[in-house]
């Protein structure tokens, strides 16, 4: 990724990552009408389109924050294709009565396809991690929450009324347990080696 040319539309990614209202507003003005039009033409309505747009922007935000997302293609095509594929997946999952898909032609090139797959893979991983985190025991959940909310492990130990050594050891074991659950989850291998 690092050797590829960053597209000038990277400004939208930076703006989202900085929660810049002007940039978010311009994304809505410039790019959301096409998505809304597509969803309304394919068995959806405006409210569903708005919800989906918010979900996709949140995925991009998370990816920018944790994976340093770099855009190598125009934002317009990237954003539209992410929304479109997410909508089609939702339709498939909800197995709505027969749906007619009115295709909007988007030319897909290699960088765009790679970015889309990366974002979709990222989103699937995030939801798998979240599901697995919720399955952890209460003690682990509490310790991990505090460990990442509070900078110093001494403070974490104090807050939980345990020794510093125990808090540190337990933190690594809880993360370890979580990674094990993720590794053993059905579908993890596909996520590790995306299509």
């Amino acid at each position: 990724m690092s050797d590829k040319k960053i597209h000038e539309d990277q400004k939208y990614i930076e703006g989202l990552s900085q929660n810049n209202s002007f940039v978010i507003q311009s994304i809505y003005t410039k790019f959301s009408p096409k998505v809304i039009h597509y969803i309304c033409n394919n068995s959806g309505d405006r409210d569903q389109a708005q919800d989906l747009i918010q979900e996709v922007l949140l995925v991009i935000y998370d990816q920018a924050k944790t994976k340093n997302l770099k855009l190598t293609c125009p934002f317009d095509a990237y954003f539209f294709l992410l929304c479109k594929r997410k909508w089609l997946n939702l339709l498939k999952k909800s197995s709505l009565q027969e749906v007619t898909i009115n295709e909007e032609v988007v030319s897909i090139n290699e960088p765009l396809e790679a970015l889309i797959l990366e974002s979709e893979n990222f989103e699937e991983k995030q939801s798998l991690y979240e599901v697995m985190f919720q399955k952890l025991g209460q003690a682990c959940k509490e310790l991990l929450t505090k460990s990442f909310q509070i900078d110093s492990m001494e403070e974490v130990a104090k807050a939980l009324n345990v020794t510093y050594g125990y808090a540190r050891k337990k933190k690594s074991l809880c993360i370890g347990q979580l990674t094990k659950m993720i590794q053993e989850a059905p579908g993890f291998t596909n996520l590790k080696n995306p299509r």
Binding site: L16, N19, S21, I24, Q54, L57, L58, Y61, D62, K65, T66, K125, Q126, Y129, E130, F133, L144, T145, S147, F148, Q149, I175, L178, T179, I182
Partner: peptide, 22 residues
């Protein structure tokens, strides 16, 4: 996994502010 947890908890306020703004 640690990065995921960090984003979930350490950046929680920031992320919530983004969601609210969105």
């Amino acid at each position: 996994t640690s990065t995921f947890l960090k984003n979930k908890f350490a950046n929680q306020t920031e992320r919530e502010a983004f969601k609210k703004n969105l």
